[in-house]
Simulated assay, not measured.
Amino acid sequence: MSEPLAITPSSDVAFTAAVKAAQQARGSRQAYARVEARGGFRTELTPDFVQFLGGIDTAFLATANAAGQPYVQHRGGPKGFIRVLDAHTLGMADFSGNRQYITVGNASENPKAFLFLMDYTHRRRIKVWGELSVVEGDADLVARLMPEDYGAIPERALLFKVSAWDINCPQHIPQKIDAPLVAAALQEREARIAALEMEVARLRGLVGTADAAGM
Rank of each mutant, 00 (worst) to 15 (best):
F114Y: 15
F114P: 06
R123E: 12
N110C: 14
V142N: 07
L90Y: 00
V142Y: 05
R123L: 07
A93P: 00
V135M: 08
V142H: 02
D86T: 05
R144V: 01
G137D: 15
L141R: 12
E131R: 14
V142D: 12
G137N: 15
A107E: 03
D119L: 07
E136K: 04
H88Y: 02
E131W: 07
K112D: 11
G97L: 11
G97E: 12
V84K: 03
I126C: 15
Y120I: 12
G130P: 09
V104W: 04
S133A: 14
G91N: 00
H88K: 13
L85C: 08
H122N: 15
W129K: 03
Q100W: 03
A143C: 08
V134F: 06
V142S: 11
L132N: 03
E109N: 08
R144Y: 09
L132K: 00
G130A: 12
N106T: 05
P147E: 09
L90N: 04
T103K: 01
F116N: 10
I102N: 09
V135W: 10
M146I: 01
S108M: 04
Q100T: 02
M146D: 01
A107N: 05
R124V: 01
A143N: 15
I126P: 02
S96F: 07
T89S: 04
T89W: 02
V134H: 10
D94S: 09
G137Y: 11
V128C: 06
F116Q: 01
Y101G: 03
N98I: 00
M118N: 06
E131K: 08
V134R: 00
S108G: 07
V84R: 02
M92F: 15
Q100N: 14
